[in-house]
Computed example of a mutant assay.
Amino acid sequence: MKNTNNVKKPTIFVTYNWNDASDLFILNLKSNLKGVEMKYDKVEIDCWDSITNFMNTIGQEDFVVQILSDKYLKSANCLYEVMQLMNSPNWTEKTMTVVMNDATDIYDPIKRLEYIQYWSDETEKYRNQLSSLPDSATVDVKEVLLKYEAIRDNIGKFLMIAADRSNPKVLDAVDAIKKKIKPVQKKKKKSNKNQTISAKTKSLLTSLWAKIVPLYREISTIMIIKHDPQRLEAIKQYRNEADALKTAFDVIKPQLKKDVRDKIQNFIATIKDFYDAAVWVCSLEKTSKTLQGAPLIRYTSAIMDTSSKMEQMSKFIDGYYLKFENCICGND
């Protein structure tokens, strides 16, 4: 008799703003979807859990259902999730957008400008508030400003992509979501046949994965916030953890197939290179604040060059993240 308990259910991250229409849609979706794992804040976040940590997982799920409302498009938390999603590989392929009735203005290019203006105003308002306070009291909250700036700079692109899609009507959206997920459910059942990985190796890989996940999430944050000298010590700590990954992997390496071993080895090496570059850029940025003239130009050029390489490494890491997860789940 086949054991179906080990079949991995497709996962769906639902991103939405708390309001009556979106809440009702989620209840309808939940009652109609079977054999899937729906993840949204009201069921995933316990008392005193980190909201940001949960939001950072949006790019890791098989699918994303994005319920756009006017409140959603004016919410910093909701759009932070969008920024995280846009940093994940093939995000448009796994994202299903539902446009609520009060957000249909996104289809009008002129109306989309109003959302860009809204976030431009909000960013400036926050910046002015910060400038009136002493620097020593605002070191941590400056990260909020950087997030606002990321939203301001990217919301136009996001809205253009959302408006260009053939989004179903709200009343038809649940059936459309079910249809998109159904083939993946069948595919996942078939892929569960050949699991030759030993229990010991599986345990070691899972332990390695637990070390990689926080490093991967921090990369997304660094790419949004860029090179902030204030975060240099924290990034150095992450770099040390990236160095430790190689030692942990060397224990597992002899027990893996060559193709799997090579994938993971390249993945870990690139993570380490990314953090080396991040530390270097933050150090350059810190030093550049004391320079002028030609030395400043040289440092600025080095910062831009290294930042460009970090962007390329980030995309490579994104591409291998899901492949590495498959190696752990199925050793394929």
Results as ranks from 00 to 15, higher is better:
K94L: 11
N192S: 14
W119T: 08
S191V: 11
T206D: 13
V7Q: 09
D20H: 12
V141D: 04
N326S: 09
S120Q: 09
L27E: 15
K74R: 15
K211C: 09
N6F: 11
K8G: 00
F13H: 01
A269E: 15
Q195E: 05
M1I: 05
D108R: 05
V82F: 00
Y118G: 04
D175A: 10
Y118S: 01
H227N: 13
V65T: 12
F249S: 11
L133P: 01
A244P: 04
E93H: 06
R127V: 02
R231E: 09
T57C: 00
A199T: 04
A76Q: 15
D273W: 03
I177V: 14
A163I: 06
N28F: 00
V170M: 10
E149G: 05
Y320E: 14
N266Q: 04
S288R: 15
V65C: 06
Q255F: 12
A199C: 00
S283K: 15
L24A: 14
N194A: 07
K253I: 08
Y320M: 07
R231D: 11
N6I: 01
R127L: 12
L145F: 10
D153M: 03
D273P: 02
T11C: 06
K2W: 03
A210Q: 08
N167H: 13
V260G: 03
I58T: 06
A103T: 09
S191Y: 07
L256E: 03
I297P: 02
L159S: 04
K186H: 12
E325L: 06
Q60T: 11
I58L: 02
T196W: 01
M38L: 15
Q292Y: 12
K246H: 08
E81H: 02
S69M: 05
R261N: 05
D250Y: 08
L215R: 03
S301N: 14
Y238L: 09
E122N: 09
I219D: 04
I177Y: 04
F249A: 11
L33W: 08
